[in-house]
C-alpha cells in the first residue's frame, strides 16, 4: 500500500513538475568542484571522521569519502561539508 502510494506521489510530482524534495522528502546535494558539498533534507549523521561522513536520509544513506572533511555548517535539515572529497556513494 505504502509502495503504491509512493509511486502515485512520484507520478504526480513528475507530471506537475513539482519540487521533489518538498513533496517526496528527497534530499538535494550540490557540490562545488570537489571541495565542498551542500546537502538538504538529511536526517542524521551516522558516522563522522576526517576521511568519512555517513549521512542518513529518508530513502537511503549517502557516504562521502575524502580527506580533511570538516562540517562547515550543521543544521537540522541541511549541512555543508568542506574538504578534499573523493567519493560520493549512495547506499540503500
Amino acid at each position: 500500500m505504502k509502495k503504491k502510494f509512493r509511486k502515485v506521489k512520484e507520478q504526480i510530482t513528475r507530471i506537475f513538475e513539482l519540487p521533489a524534495e518538498s513533496i517526496e522528502g528527497a534530499y538535494r546535494i550540490i557540490t562545488i568542484g570537489d571541495k565542498s558539498l551542500y546537502m538538504e533534507n538529511h536526517m542524521a549523521i551516522r558516522e563522522y571522521t576526517l576521511k568519512k561522513l555517513r549521512i542518513e536520509t529518508k530513502k537511503n544513506e549517502v557516504i562521502i569519502m575524502g580527506n580533511d572533511l570538516i562540517l562547515r555548517k550543521m543544521g537540522e535539515r541541511n549541512l555543508m561539508v568542506e574538504g578534499d572529497i573523493k567519493i560520493i556513494e549512495f547506499k540503500d
Binding site: A44, I45, R46, Y48, I70, L71, M74, L79
Partner: peptide
Amino acid sequence: SVERLINIAAKNGIRIWDVKR
C-alpha cells in the same frame, strides 16, 4: 560516538559550525 552530539545539536536547533574530528 560524538556523531550523536552532532545529531542532538541539529535536532535541538543548536547552531554549530566548523565541526572537525
